[in-house]
Simulated scan of single mutants.
Amino acid sequence: MAAVDAAAEKSWYAVRCVFQWVAWEGAPYEERLTLWWADSMEQAIARAEGEARTYARENGHRCLGLAQCYRLATDGRPDDGDEVFSLLRDSTLGQEAYLDRYFDTGRERQGRDDD
């Protein structure tokens, strides 16, 4: 009996795509994560890229063509506290400089204001 390839089983995948909001002042960038129930990482990326093109077109944004995928380490549907994305990056920067460079430049628009 052949061994079952775990990667070939259907799983949840999170895919991060990057956009530029060209019609907005300053043309800010958006990193957007979407979840996909797929047979493989390749299938999840293909589906996410299709959705990303539609999202960009319908909202007047530019899709920058970057798709990073992460297979969720969950046995079923995602639940509270499940990790949905992880990215490792090598850097010689210290902790504060690293956060300032990649996550806390002071120009982020975080949260959502529905008022």
Rank of each mutant, 00 (worst) to 15 (best):
N59F: 06
I45M: 10
Y98A: 11
D39R: 11
E31F: 04
L35F: 06
C63F: 10
W37C: 02
L66N: 08
E51A: 06
E9V: 14
S40Y: 04
I45P: 05
A38L: 01
A52W: 00
I45W: 02
R109N: 14
V15D: 10
E30T: 00
V4K: 13
E31L: 03
F85L: 06
D114V: 09
A44W: 00
V18C: 08
Q20K: 06
E108R: 06
R53A: 08
A73Q: 15
W21Q: 12
R101L: 01
M1T: 13
L93E: 15
Q20S: 05
D79G: 08
Q20P: 01
Q110R: 07
D90R: 15
P78Q: 15
D80E: 06
D5V: 03
D100Q: 10
G111H: 07
N59Y: 08
M41L: 07
L87Y: 14
P28E: 01
D113R: 11
Q43D: 14
D90Q: 15
R101E: 14
H61G: 01
W24E: 05
D82V: 07
A56D: 11
E58F: 00
R47H: 10
A46Y: 02
E96S: 11
R77E: 14
Y13E: 03
W21P: 09
E51N: 12
R62M: 13
V15I: 11
A38G: 01
G26T: 06
E108P: 04
D115R: 13
E42G: 12
R62D: 15
V22G: 14
L87S: 11
D39H: 02
R57L: 11
M1D: 07
M41Y: 04
R71V: 12
A14D: 07
D113Q: 07
A14W: 00
A44Y: 01
A52Y: 06
K10T: 09
R57S: 12
N59V: 01
Q110G: 14
L99T: 04
G81T: 08
D75P: 07
Q68L: 13
R57K: 13
Y13N: 03
S86Y: 12
D75G: 15
S40N: 04
V4Y: 04
A97S: 12
E58R: 00
Q110L: 13
R62A: 10
C63K: 09
V4P: 02
C17K: 09
Q68A: 11
W24V: 10
D104M: 10
Q20R: 08
V18Y: 03
A44F: 01
L99D: 15
L33H: 12
E30N: 03
H61I: 01
A44I: 00
A46C: 08
L33Y: 07
Y13R: 10
S11T: 12
R107W: 05
D113L: 11
D5M: 04
L87R: 13
D79A: 08
A8L: 02
R62N: 06
D90N: 14
A38K: 00
R16H: 03
V22K: 15
L88Y: 13
Y70A: 02
W21A: 14
A38Y: 00
E58S: 00
A44H: 02
L88H: 14
I45L: 03
S40I: 02
E51H: 12
V22M: 10
V84S: 09
E9Q: 11
E58K: 00
D5P: 02
G106V: 13
R77A: 06
A23F: 06
W21S: 15
A56I: 04
E25T: 06
C69H: 09
D114C: 09
Q95E: 04
T54V: 12
